[in-house]
């Protein structure tokens, strides 16, 4: 079942200066794609390729200039649908400090469901469940600013989870984290997806994109590639031309090939590469 469906999706940023001169910057230029319910999709592309604009079109923070974006069958251009879409699709951004609003962890996680007008007893249950899901229940009475980056980002994710969304869009959630924080956040993302939450991950880390069911490659507001990680990372030269790269295991496979050692091109992770080389 299609959860997201973009048809000729166009988005223009329009600004006018003090002289009334209007300039238009086309950020998304006729996208067509579908994302199935429950799947894990990664979106990669260089800075300015339209990734974050697309993310904001996925929960009606922005609506298409032309074309349509359907979320669970609902057209985001129809204002009647705005709140329904935002209840279904939650967002987690890059910098946890910009999305934490309360001085106590559990208050912060409760903020979203409170705005939905949910019964306080139900909110308590949801907050505890969400904090358990991100392995932060022991911190529920703590102050967020005393936590590490990875912990704060997991609080932000718990805030999204407590709204019981069907989908979470993660916009570079690990960009500011140390290695352990990154691992923690990726593990939580994997667990949420395993529970059936449709997952969209925007990232500059190719090894993170390799974990997805499908990768969409954006450049200049257009889809340049779309496919499984194996299909996309096979096209290493094209990715390089788009200022992107390949995961380290794929890079090693390519380097080995140059030295006359054949490694299968469907090896995406370090684990798979180690298993192959030591078999």
């Amino acid at each position: 079942m299609n959860y997201f469906e973009a048809k000729n999706l166009v988005f223009d940023y329009v600004k006018s200066d003090e002289n009334g001169l209007v300039t238009t910057n086309r950020a998304l230029d006729g996208l067509n794609f579908v994302i199935e319910k429950g799947k894990f999709t990664a979106i990669i592309g260089q800075n300015g390729s339209g990734k974050s604009t697309l993310a904001k079109n996925m929960n009606a923070l922005l609506v298409p200039t032309e074309g349509t974006m359907l979320v669970d069958g609902m057209d985001t251009c129809d204002a009647e649908n705005t709140w329904k879409v935002r209840q279904r699709v939650a967002m987690v951004f890059q910098n946890p400090d910009n999305q934490i609003v309360s001085a106590i962890v559990e208050d912060d996680v409760a903020f979203g469901p409170e705005t939905l007008g949910i019964d306080p007893d139900e909110i308590r249950v949801r907050v505890d469940e969400a904090l358990m899901g991100v392995e932060m229940i022991d911190y529920k009475k703590k102050a967020p600013h005393l936590l590490s980056g990875g912990q704060k980002q997991r609080i932000a994710i718990a805030g999204a989870v407590a709204m019981q969304p069907e989908c979470i869009v993660f916009d570079e959630p690990t960009a500011m984290l140390d290695p352990k924080g990154r691992q923690e956040v990726l593990k939580v993302i994997g667990q949420l997806n395993a529970k059936g939450i449709t997952t969209v991950l925007i990232t500059h880390f190719m090894e993170e994109a390799a974990l997805a069911d499908k990768i969409i490659v954006l450049d200049g507001g257009r889809i340049q590639m779309e496919g499984t990680p194996v299909e996309v990372f096979r096209r290493a030269d094209e990715l390089k031309a788009l200022s992107l790269g390949v995961p380290p295991a794929v890079e090693l496979g390519l380097e080995l090939k140059e030295r006359g050692i054949d490694a299968p091109d469907d090896i995406m992770t370090i684990d798979e590469m180690v298993d192959y080389l030591c078999q």
Binding site: D178, P179, K180, M273, V274
Partner: peptide, 20 residues
């Protein structure tokens, strides 16, 4: 300490542990 190895070193260490 919550840190990691460079990818190449991580691969090297794991390959060694597997006997390479």
């Amino acid at each position: 300490m919550g840190l990691a190895l460079p990818d190449a070193m991580e691969l090297t260490m794991r390959l060694r542990r597997k006997g390479m």
